[in-house]
Design a protein around this nucleic acid. Structure first.
Length: 890
DNA sequence: CTGCGATCTTAA
DNA sequence: TCGTTAAGATCGCAGC
């Protein structure tokens, strides 16, 4: 901290940031790089120098007094670029939000304001630092004033100026007058450069000095030029000369920054998409740990119970030995019901030797006491990713949480669709609380069992922070969900889905290690053979899995014609290889190699690793807060992309088998996307087709090719199917031509015909895109939102992508809504009918159950009713069933 | 060695 | 430079 006054040349740094930083836009497509660069400079100044006194000066739009003296002042400058102009108000707004004194005056420039302030303050003996890189401001340097350029981190005092320019700072004005300034269109004396000026000023002292002595100079080109341009030189000086009488505070208090308006600042940062700045600039504070209590005795546990008895909501977080449910053991539970207090109940903390530490209640004692609350169907529980806590308690503590399970992660997913992180600590930071990071409490976060070795006291603070933070978020998001009309979706769809997904994950699905083992050997043999053959044909060894090396072989060594190019080289994908297959043996072998290698690595080897040795089953994770459309996603393993189209793929499916004496029942929605499209578009032909149970692809084909349905070929149907799918994705003629290997012209004729047939669909697409343009987002039937920040941008590619998304998301998202509703209906319905069928998988439009064969007929009835009646559309929902002893089709 | 982007493939 | 949504393997590069 110093008592120097920092005067920042705001406008100069706006320009520098604008040119120095690559274009950047926020999520709405507004350019932000100048703002970003400027704020970085300002923030670095604040951080590094911690100035006690600081002010920023800006130019204002419009003519300045220099134009009166010299109308051509800056006449050669192009107008401010549009994408910079729109950023200026944000910069000024940010400086105001930071509560830094900010000066601007109509008719004068930032330089003049700085000059006035520097002179006024230095005449009072105050130290001044001019923050600028502009040489024009160097003339302000004196024994009290220095100039600092943060970009170069260089301080210029009198000595530095003299060393660099060989004149005194106060002589710089006269130097510039002679030299002129091409960037400001100030003429000076033509043909006089820095070296000449240096000589002249050093010899004669000043501009006046030069002209007084001019007559005595011997005849030369220089003398001639000086004589001819005397007026210009003096005019230039009047133009360049800084104005020292701008109105600026005379007292230091006028340069004293106040505490920032953090709310406004964060709001601006968020709008600009500067997430890193939101973090650093927030007024966030550590969570107050005063009300955090350890529960180590029965008496203390009883007092917690008494407290929860009066509560309307129980916030819970479990600490365990692993993120993976199947290997997680309980280490402790934290609870709270309001922001006054929170409790941590340790049950599994260990000493270094692995022995349980003293001062912990028995896990059973704790769960017996809490069970009435956890299992209460009345008392809502709240957690951040509560599916995990539900699963741990069910799996390792035999305690099944009931009642609504509110989840702040899901709340944030719905309320702020499209936000990048949903992690508790990041969300809390945006709500002004800094949480202790997991890495701060465990020594080696990667090693297993780690939380068990955290000290009990420290664990208490850490864990209680999490329930406290979760409650803080809930108090913010619950009203927000209501405001945004998302509360019903949250309560009636996402919340009841949580235990269903958890139970599906816990159930898992049996995978025969034996079958996989077999496949692995077989695939490996063929892969080895193929690799040898390919290397043989190539004449040298290379990595077949490297697109780069493969490209060299195919297109350079073999000289085959290359297709499209990628950013890094030639494309070698299946489409390209297919086209080369008839020219050379290698491409076909590569294709076969690719197919097998993919199956081998993704579906055989890694699937084998994920088989739980105890249960012989794999337990996927169904992620509820990942996709932009509202679909679920599945990981570890991804059970939603198990191969199906190829023969080998189907062999992998054969490894998925039901438990002994059980069968799989798969129920999939027929054409759900197109039915949703029919409902949204109200297209007469589409509605009619579905209402009459027609084969929609066949019907489309018959109309498209103008043939009777009886004469349709499978090729015609395939084309129609492609178009039907393409429509759902907002496809162009280019996309279709690519897909069908036909010309663009042919493709566009198909599309034209399609829209002629289904005029309502075309109309619907136009309407959705137009509405998205107005709202900036689209919604599904259950009001789920997706933001489309690019929907109105100038960039055609990005805008058109947003337009396709606007068309696709309501369809895909509504289909996702529907199957979620079906899941919520079907699980209790099966239970009510005393059927033992267990839901195992959801694959976007399909549900897979495991059940005794004897219950097949009755289960199908229940499933059919639940799925087909999930939501009432203007067309029927139709479900098809398949039964099998594995997941293989056919 | 780790992290990350690009490419490619799998599914709906 | 062109049909949506995902997960995941591998390569190859940049940085430590």
């Amino acid at each position: 901290m110093t008592d120097e006054v920092y005067l920042v040349d705001g406008s100069a740094y706006i320009y520098r940031a604008y040119h120095a930083i690559a274009p950047l836009t926020n999520s709405e497509g507004m350019p932000t790089h100048a703002v970003f660069g400027f704020m970085n400079i300002l923030r670095r100044l604040l951080k590094d120098k911690k100035p006690q006194y600081l002010a920023v000066a800006f130019d204002m739009r419009g003519p300045v007094f220099r134009h009166d003296i010299y109308p051509n002042y800056k006449a050669n400058r192009p107008p401010m670029p549009e994408d910079l102009a729109v950023q200026i108000p944000y910069i000024k707004e940010l400086v105001r939000a930071m509560n830094i004194p900010c000066f601007e005056t109509q008719g004068i420039e930032a330089d003049d304001i700085i000059a006035s302030a520097a002179q006024l303050l230095s005449s009072q003996g105050k130290k001044v630092v001019v923050v600028s890189g502009d040489k024009d401001l160097l003339q302000l340097v004196n024994e009290h004033v220095v100039m600092w350029d943060p970009m170069k981190d260089k301080v210029m005092d009198i000595a530095a100026v003299e060393e660099k320019y060989h004149v005194k700072p106060e002589q710089l004005l006269d130097c510039y007058s002679l030299m002129g300034d091409s960037s400001d269109n100030v003429p000076g004396v033509p043909g006089v450069g820095p070296k000449t000026v240096e000589k002249l000023i050093n010899q004669y002292g000043s501009l006046e000095g030069v002209y007084e002595e001019l007559a005595g100079m011997k005849k030369s080109k220089l003398k001639e030029r000086l004589e001819e341009n005397k007026e210009k030189a003096f005019l230039s000086r009047d133009v360049i000369r800084l104005k020292y009488d701008a109105v600026v505070p005379a007292e230091l208090s006028g340069y004293l920054p106040q505490e920032a308006d953090y709310e406004k600042l964060n709001d601006l940062y968020t709008r600009l998409g500067f997430s890193s700045m939101v973090k650093e600039e927030s007024k966030a504070i550590p969570v107050p740990t005063k009300g955090f209590k350890l529960v180590q005795t029965v008496e203390e546990l009883n007092s917690v119970v008494e407290h929860i008895n009066k509560a309307a909501l129980l916030v819970i977080d479990t600490e365990t030995t692993s993120l993976d449910v199947s290997s997680a053991a309980l280490v402790g539970i934290s609870l709270c019901t309001d922001l006054e207090s929170a409790w941590y109940i340790p049950v599994g903390h260990c000493a270094e030797d692995g022995c349980l530490l003293e001062g912990q209640l028995q896990q059973a004692t704790v769960l017996d006491a809490l069970a009435p609350f956890l299992e209460s169907t009345e008392l809502p529980k709240l957690g951040h990713n509560i599916k995990y806590d539900y699963s741990v308690l069910k799996k390792s503590c035999n305690c099944t949480m009931q009642g609504p399970l509110y989840d702040t992660m899901i709340a944030a997913y719905l309320a702020q669709p499209g936000r990048r992180s949903l992690k508790l600590d990041e969300l809390c930071l945006e709500h002004d609380y800094i949480l202790t990071a997991f890495d701060q409490v465990v020594e080696d976060p990667k090693s297993e069992n780690c939380f068990a070795y955290v000290g009990i006291k420290q664990a208490c603070d850490y864990s209680c922070e999490d329930v406290y933070g979760t409650l803080v978020l809930w108090q913010a998001y619950e009203p927000l969900l209501k405001e945004m009309d998302q509360y019903k979706l949250f309560l009636d769809v996402e919340t009841p889905l949580i235990p269903i997904l958890a139970d599906m994950e816990l159930a898992g699905i049996t995978v025969s290690g034996k079958v996989l083992e077999h496949l692995e050997e077989e695939f490996q043999e063929e892969l080895d053979t193929l690799r040898e053959e390919i290397h043989e044909l190539a004449g040298y060894s290379f990595n077949i899995q490297s697109p780069k090396q493969l490209g060299v072989l195919l297109f350079e060594e073999l000289g085959l014609p290359h297709g499209r190019k990628t950013k890094t080289g030639y494309s070698t994908d299946m489409k390209v290889l297919e086209k080369l297959a008839h020219r050379h043996e290698i491409p076909a072998k590569i294709m076969r190699y690719r197919i097998l290698a993919k199956l081998q690595s993704t579906y055989v080897k890694s699937l084998k690793k994920l088989i739980n040795p105890e249960s012989g089953r794999v337990h996927t994770s169904f992620n509820q807060t990942v996709t932009a459309t509202g679909r679920l996603s599945s990981s570890n393993p991804n059970m939603q992309n198990i191969p199906i189209r190829t023969r080998e793929g189907n062999r992998i499916r054969k490894a998925f088998i039901p438990r002994e004496n059980l069968v799989f029942l798969s129920a999939d929605y027929s054409q759900i996307d197109l039915r949703v499209l029919a409902h949204f578009s109200q297209d007469a032909a589409l509605l009619h087709a579905f209402q009459n149970g027609e084969d929609i692809h066949a019907r489309t084909a018959a109309e498209l090719f103008s043939v009777s349905p009886l004469l349709l070929t499978s090729e015609m149907r395939r084309v129609a199917k492609s178009i039907n799918f393409g429509i759902v994705y907002g496809m162009s003629s280019f996309g279709l031509s690519n897909q069908l290997n036909i010309s663009r012209k042919e493709a566009s004729i198909f599309i034209e015909k399609y829209f002629h047939l289904y005029g309502g669909v075309k109309e619907f697409m136009g309407k959705v895109v137009a509405q998205a343009g107005i709202d900036g987002y689209v919604t599904t039937l259950l009001n789920r939102r997706r933001m489309l920040p690019d929907i109105n941008v100038k960039n055609k590619t990005r805008r058109e992508f947003a337009e396709r998304t606007a068309i696709n998301t309501p369809i895909q998202g509504t289909a996702a809504d529907i199957i979620k509703l079906a899941m919520i209906k079907v699980v209790p319905a099966l239970q009510k009918e005393n059927l033992s069928a267990r839901l195992l998988l959801q694959i976007h439009d399909e549900l897979v159950f495991e059940l005794p064969e004897s219950e097949l007929a009755e289960t199908q009835k229940v499933v059919k009713v639940a799925m087909e009646g999930a939501l009432k559309l203007d067309v029927p929902l139709v479900v098809n069933f398949e039964v099998g002893k594995s997941l293989a089709k056919g």
